[in-house]
Design a protein around this nucleic acid. Structure first.
Length: 652
DNA sequence: AGCACGCCGACT
DNA sequence: GTCGGCGTGCTC
C-alpha cells in the first residue's frame, strides 16, 4: 500500500511513499519520511494501492500518531486556503496542526476556581440573543454585533454557545491575542468547566496536541484561542465567535498569510455553522458587508448595568518631549482620580516609535544598520531595533556628523513610567508592554492586582486597550494620539480610531462616571471630532468615501507583491522583471487589474533585506490570483524572495 | 525551503 | 588545468 503525503515546504504535493507492512497508516495521521535527503514530518491525505511510475518510491520511516489527528474536512480547508492565498497545502497543514508527538494534559488552570453566579442577560442582550438564535435557524448564519464597549457582547456569545452546545455541537471562540485568552478563559470556565480548551502558541507543543485532540474527538465542546484556532476540527461545528473582529491580529503576518476572519466566514457556510463577529468599532469591511445584507447587523447601544460612556476631551500638547509627557490637565485629572481611590490607565501606543536618539546638529537619528529605521532608546543605555533586535550602546557622538550634541527625543513606555513615578512619587505604577508581559504568569498576576485596586496607574502600549474590565478605572489618558496616525498606509486612521475608542471604553465601567483625555500635537485632525462624539458611524461614512474614491477595500481587493533580498541591485532587477511580466500578461488577459509600482516599501530595509513592492488592485480577487500565479515564477533569482500577500493588512 | 548539478570566470 | 561563484531544477 502507498500513502500520499503533504510536506511543510512551499511545494505543492502530494508525494507518494510506500507503507511497510508493520505500520498502521491512514489518512489524518502524521508520519516521518525521508524527503530530499532529510527526515521530516509529513501529513497523510490518502492511502491507496496504485503503484506510482516514473520515480523510485521511498518507504515511510515511522508513524507518529496512533490516532488520526485530522480528516478530509481539514484537507479540503487546507486546499481552499492555500489556493486563496497562493501558498501551499502542506505549509498550511504544518501551520494549522499541533506539532507535539505525545499529548500532554498537564495544563495548569491559571486561576483559582471560584463560584460565579449565572449572569442574567439585559433586555437588550436578550433581544440580540433571541434574534440570532431565531434567524440562524432560518439560514442566516453570519452575524455582526456592533456593541459599544462595556455593552456585554461576551454574555451574548456565551448564551449562544450554551444553546448550541446543548444541541451537541461545538464552538470555536477566537480572540485577537494570547493575553486575552486567560481572561475569557476564566469566564468560560465558570460556565463550561472541563468542556473548555485553550489553543495558542504559548502552550507547549504537547499541550497543543492534547487540546487539539480533546476538541477533535468532541470531549471538549468549546475552544478559545488565537487566530490559528480557526482551523480546529470537531465532530459538528456549531459556531465560530470572532471577538474584536476589527483587530489586525486576525491576519497572519507570514506565509501562509491567511485572515482568520475570512476562513471563519468560509467555514460557516461550508459546515453550516453560525458565525458571530463582535466589536465596538467594526472594521469598515464588516460594516459594509452588513449594510449590504451579507452579514446580519445587531446593535448593543447601552452599557451593561448602570454605567454610561465616558466623556472624551482632546488636549493639545506642544511636543513629544519629556516635559510634555503629562499636560497639566492630565496631572490634575489623575490626581483627582487617585485621591478618590480610583484607578488610571495611560496609553502610549507603540513602543516601537519612540524614543529616538537624534543629533541636534545635523538632525540625523541613530539608525539600525540592518533596517532603515530609527533605533529606540532603552533605559539600560542601549539603543534597540524593534524589527531585527539589533542593539548597541548609545553613541557619544553623532555617527553621521561627529557632533556630541545628541539628545533623546520622544517617549516610550519605559521612560513614561519613570517620568510618571517621579511626578507622582507615592503611587503604585505598573507598566504593561511586550517586554513586561513576556515573563510568564505576570499577566494573571497583574490582572489580579488591578482588580484588587493595588495598582493606581497602569501604563502600557495597545495591550492596555484590549478587553480589560476594571471597574475602578475612571480616567484613561492617551499620552500621544499622533503616533501611527500618519503612517503611509490606508488603514492607519481606522486603526487609530478603533484603538482610541477601545481604550476609551476602559474608563468608567464601574459605578463612577469615566473620563478620557487624549493628548495630541495636532488637535485639528478630523478623526478627533468623531472620537469626541463617540461617533463611529460618522467616522465610518467618511472613511468609506475615502476608500471608494481611492478604490481601496471594500471596493476592491488588493494583492501586494514584495521582493526582498540582501542585494539591492538584484531586488530592483527582479521586481522590474516581475513588473514586465505582469504588464505583458495584463495586456493579454487581465485589463481589470490596476498595477501600482514598483516602488520602495515604506520600511525599505528590514534585517538587511531591501524591500520593493508592487500593489495590485482589482474588483476580482480571482483575477488577481490568476495574474500572480502566471507571473510569480519570473522572480527566480537566488537570494531574492517574493512575498505574496492577498488582502494585506498593511503595506509597510 | 534545501540541496545537488552544472556552467562560465580567475588563479595557485 | 582546477576552484567556486550562482542560475536551474528537483524533491515521492
Amino acid at each position: 500500500m502507498y500513502a500520499d503525503v503533504y510536506v511543510g515546504y512551499p511545494l505543492e504535493g502530494p508525494f507518494t511513499y510506500f507503507i511497510p507492512e508493520q505500520f498502521q497508516v491512514s489518512p489524518g495521521k502524521r508520519v516521518r519520511v525521508n524527503f530530499a535527503g532529510r527526515n521530516i514530518v509529513a501529513f497523510v491525505c490518502r492511502v491507496h494501492d496504485e503503484t506510482p511510475t516514473g520515480y523510485k518510491v521511498k518507504d515511510i520511516v515511522s508513524v507518529i500518531d496512533n490516532d488520526e489527528i485530522f480528516d478530509q474536512r481539514l484537507m479540503d480547508l487546507a486546499r481552499y486556503v492555500s489556493s486563496s492565498y497562493l501558498s501551499y497545502t502542506g505549509e498550511l497543514l504544518a501551520m494549522a496542526l499541533p506539532s507535539g508527538t505525545k499529548p500532554s494534559d498537564r495544563y495548569k488552570i491559571p486561576f483559582e476556581k471560584k463560584h460565579v453566579e449565572e449572569k442574567i442577560l439585559s433586555p437588550e442582550q436578550d433581544r440580540v440573543f433571541d434574534d440570532i438564535k431565531n434567524t440562524c435557524s432560518d439560514g442566516q448564519l453570519r452575524h455582526l454585533i456592533f456593541g459599544i464597549t462595556g455593552s456585554g457582547k461576551t454574555e451574548v456569545y456565551i448564551s449562544m454557545a450554551r444553546h448550541l452546545i446543548k444541541q451537541g455541537r461545538s464552538v470555536i471562540y477566537l480572540v485577537p491575542e494570547i493575553s486575552l485568552t486567560s481572561q475569557i478563559f476564566e469566564r468560560l470556565y465558570s460556565v463550561f468547566g472541563d468542556e473548555l480548551v485553550v489553543y495558542h502558541s504559548h502552550l507547549t507543543a504537547n499541550q497543543r496536541l492534547h487540546h487539539w485532540m480533546k476538541f477533535n474527538t468532541g470531549k471538549a465542546k468549546i475552544a478559545v484561542g488565537t487566530r490559528s484556532a480557526v482551523f480546529m476540527q470537531c465532530p459538528d461545528l456549531g459556531m465560530i465567535i470572532i471577538d474584536e473582529e476589527h483587530d489586525g491580529s486576525y491576519k497572519e503576518h507570514s506565509s501562509p498569510r491567511y485572515n482568520a476572519r475570512r476562513i471563519a466566514f468560509y467555514r460557516s457556510k461550508k459546515e453550516n455553522a453560525v458565525l458571530i463577529m463582535g466589536s465596538a468599532t467594526p472594521s469598515v469591511e464588516s460594516l459594509y458587508a452588513a449594510e449590504n445584507g451579507i452579514i446580519k447587523l445587531h446593535e448593543l447601544k447601552n452599557r451593561f448595568g448602570s454605567s454610561s460612556l465616558p466623556e472624551i476631551e482632546i488636549v493639545k500638547v506642544n511636543s513629544s518631549r519629556e516635559q510634555d509627557i503629562l499636560s497639566s490637565k492630565m496631572k490634575l485629572y489623575t490626581k483627582k482620580a487617585v485621591d478618590n481611590s480610583k484607578q488610571v490607565i495611560y496609553l502610549l501606543n507603540r513602543r516601537g516609535f519612540a524614543p529616538f536618539v537624534i543629533c541636534q546638529s545635523c538632525g540625523e537619528s541613530v539608525q539600525c544598520p540592518n533596517c532603515n529605521i530609527s533605533l529606540n532608546f532603552h533605559k539600560e543605555g542601549n539603543v534597540v531595533c524593534h524589527y531585527c533586535g539589533y542593539s548597541r550602546r548609545v553613541p557619544d557622538k553623532c555617527l553621521n556628523c561627529g557632533s556630541d550634541d545628541i539628545v533623546k527625543i520622544g517617549t516610550g513606555t519605559q521612560k513614561a513610567e519613570e517620568f510618571i513615578s517621579k511626578t507622582f512619587n507615592d503611587l503604585t505604577i505598573f507598566r504593561l508592554d511586550q517586554d513586561s508581559s513576556r515573563k510568564k504568569n505576570s499577566s494573571f498576576e497583574f490582572i489580579d492586582r488591578m482588580q484588587k485596586g493595588e495598582i493606581d496607574v497602569l501604563i502600557g502600549t495597545q495591550m492596555v486597550a484590549k478587553g480589560f474590565d476594571f471597574p475602578g478605572v475612571v480616567l484613561v489618558g492617551v499620552l500621544l494620539a499622533d503616533i501611527g496616525l500618519n503612517l503611509p498606509d490606508f488603514r492607519a486612521s481606522e486603526r487609530i480610531f478603533s484603538l482610541l475608542m477601545q481604550v476609551a471604553g476602559r474608563s468608567g465601567r464601574g459605578d463612577s462616571p469615566g473620563k478620557v483625555l487624549i493628548q495630541t500635537i495636532d488637535d485639528q485632525q478630523e478623526i478627533f471630532r468623531y472620537i469626541r462624539n463617540h461617533d463611529y458611524y460618522g467616522f465610518y461614512k467618511n472613511e468609506l468615501n475615502m476608500r471608494r474614491s481611492l478604490d481601496y477595500p471594500p471596493f476592491s481587493r488588493i494583492a501586494r507583491l514584495l521582493v526582498r533580498g540582501k542585494d539591492e541591485k538584484k531586488v530592483t532587477n527582479s521586481i522590474k522583471k516581475l513588473k514586465n511580466s505582469i504588464d505583458s500578461e495584463i495586456t493579454n488577459c487581465s485589463p481589470i487589474v490596476k498595477v501600482l509600482g514598483p516602488s520602495e516599501a515604506p520600511l525599505s530595509k528590514i534585517s538587511s533585506n531591501f524591500r520593493h513592492h508592487i500593489i495590485l488592485k482589482s474588483k476580482s480577487v480571482a483575477e488577481l490570483r490568476k495574474l500572480i500565479s502566471r507571473t510569480r515564477d519570473s522572480v527566480s533569482s537566488r537570494d531574492v524572495y517574493l512575498e505574496i500577500d492577498i488582502d494585506p493588512h498593511d503595506m509597510l
